[in-house]
């Protein structure tokens, strides 16, 4: 009996200590981790999407709640009006997730630009989706509220040859962005007002 109590006590203490330490380390590093992710993956894409904006998109951001998670949104100010939001969605590709940033004009509901931010697809195949502009150049100007598909699956988007899966994943991610946009539009519209000056 005494041994059993000791076992339970020791296990509980070790588990709670571990939980405590991890919570502390998590708090300690979370800003730096977000920053690294931003600098390494999102910043270049974000700047291309919001080219010509009069503000610094990296600084103009807010968070909205989508499902259980928080979603970071970046704002672009054009002609004095904060009318463009950019956020990131993802879909599974061939080997891992493909992250796509999508910029949407709040007034016209049209796509301003997209960009692949992070992916671990096979070099030379799926990797082209990030480097080659052929895929992402097809999106600007399209209405966000629709389902995007590659031609092979009966859609309208030309896939990069040899990277059909990744191209399809990019399409799915943009579609996902549209689904979120439908749901979050009223909130996004209120949130961007804080950036008008």
């Amino acid at each position: 009996m005494k041994e059993l109590i000791k076992m339970v006590v020791v296990l509980t203490i070790i588990s709670s200590l571990s939980g405590g330490v991890l919570a502390y380390v998590n708090d300690l590093t979370i800003d730096q981790r977000d920053y690294q992710n931003l600098i390494n993956n999102q910043a270049p894409t974000l700047k291309t999407i919001l080219e010509g904006a009069s503000n610094d998109p990296l600084e103009s951001k807010f968070e909205v709640k989508y499902g259980p998670k928080k979603m970071k949104c970046y704002v672009g100010v054009f002609d004095g009006k904060p009318n463009t939001v950019v956020y990131e969605t993802y879909k599974s590709g061939y080997a891992d997730k493909v992250y796509v940033m999508v910029g949407i004009n709040l007034e016209t509901d049209k796509i301003v630009g997209i960009g692949v931010t992070k992916h671990t697809e096979t070099k030379g195949y799926g990797a082209d989706a990030k480097e080659k502009p052929d895929l992402k150049n097809q999106f600007p100007g399209l209405d966000i509220m629709q389902e995007f598909k590659v031609k092979k699956e009966g859609g309208t988007i030309d896939a990069i040859s040899g990277a059909t899966i990744t191209s399809a994943a990019v399409c799915k991610a943009v579609t996902e962005a549209g689904i979120r946009y439908k749901e979050l539009k009223p909130e996004l519209e209120t949130q961007v007002k804080q950036f008008s000056n």
């Binding site: 020791v10 296990l11 070790i14 588990s15 571990s18 330490v21 991890l22 380390v25 998590n26 590093t29 730096q32 981790r33 690294q36 992710n37 390494n40």
Partner: peptide
């Protein structure tokens, strides 16, 4: 069980540290 918890804790710390300071 105790070993595993201890090891898993340090692994998580390493993961966070690498993500924060050695992203590549």
């Amino acid at each position: 069980a105790c070993f595993i918890i201890i090891i898993a804790t340090f692994v998580t710390i390493v993961k966070f540290a690498l993500e924060a300071y050695a992203y590549d």
